[in-house]
Amino acid sequence: MLRRAVEDISTGSDSDYSSTWISWFLSSKGNEYFCEVDEDFILDRFNLTGLNNEVANYAQALDLITDQLDDEVQDELRGSLDVQARLLYGLIHARWIVTARGLAKMVEKYKRGDFGRCPRVLCQSQSLLPVGLIDIPYEKSVKLYCGRCEDLYSPKSSRHGSIDGAYFGTTFPHLLFLVYPTLIPPKTGPPLDGPSSANNNSNANSSEGGSKVRQRRGRGEELLPDATGTESVGEGISTASVALKAERYRPRIYGFQLHETAKLQRWQEATRDRQVGKLEDLEARAS
Rank of each mutant, 00 (worst) to 15 (best):
K278M: 08
S15M: 06
L244C: 01
Q84G: 02
N47S: 02
R95N: 10
G113R: 11
F172D: 06
I237M: 04
L51V: 05
K29Y: 09
C118W: 13
H259Q: 02
D67P: 00
N52C: 05
H93Y: 12
D281T: 08
E247I: 04
R219T: 08
G277E: 10
L2I: 14
R248S: 09
A56L: 06
L178R: 15
E36D: 09
V98N: 06
P186C: 04
L175N: 01
C123M: 05
S15A: 13
N47E: 08
C146N: 08
R101A: 15
D63F: 09
R250Y: 11
F115N: 03
W21P: 00
Y167N: 04
E231I: 08
P190G: 00
T99V: 12
L258P: 00
I65D: 04
L81I: 05
S238R: 04
F46V: 06
Q124I: 10
R148Y: 07
Y110T: 07
A246S: 04
D193S: 07
L26I: 11
G113S: 04
G169I: 10
N199E: 04
E108P: 00
D82N: 15
Q68M: 06
V179Q: 10
L244F: 07
A5L: 14
A204Y: 13
R4E: 10
Q84H: 13
L51I: 05
I22D: 02
V131E: 09
C118Q: 11
V242C: 04
R159V: 04
A85P: 02
A262C: 05
E235M: 01
S125Y: 05
G189R: 03
D40S: 07
A100V: 12
S127G: 08
L176K: 01
L129N: 07
N200A: 07
D114P: 00
I134H: 14
R120F: 11
L43S: 12
S127F: 02
T188G: 01
S241R: 11
W21F: 13
G90A: 12
A270W: 13
A284R: 12
E7G: 01
K156I: 12
D14F: 09
F41G: 01
A246C: 01
V233N: 06
S238V: 06
E221Q: 09
A270P: 00
A100R: 15
D281V: 11
T230L: 09
R266F: 03
A286G: 06
P195I: 09
E247K: 03
C35V: 15
L144P: 02
I9L: 14
T188Y: 07
Y138F: 15
T66Q: 02
D193M: 04
S28G: 05
Y153M: 05
L223T: 12
L2T: 14
R250F: 05
K187C: 01
L48Y: 08
S211I: 13
L175G: 00
V55P: 02
Q257A: 11
Y58C: 01
L183V: 03
L81F: 09
Q68W: 01
R95T: 09
N205V: 14
R101Y: 15
K29R: 11
H174P: 00
V98K: 11
G147P: 03
T239D: 02
G255N: 05
S19Y: 07
E7L: 08
R148N: 08
L152T: 09
S158I: 14
E54R: 06
V242I: 15
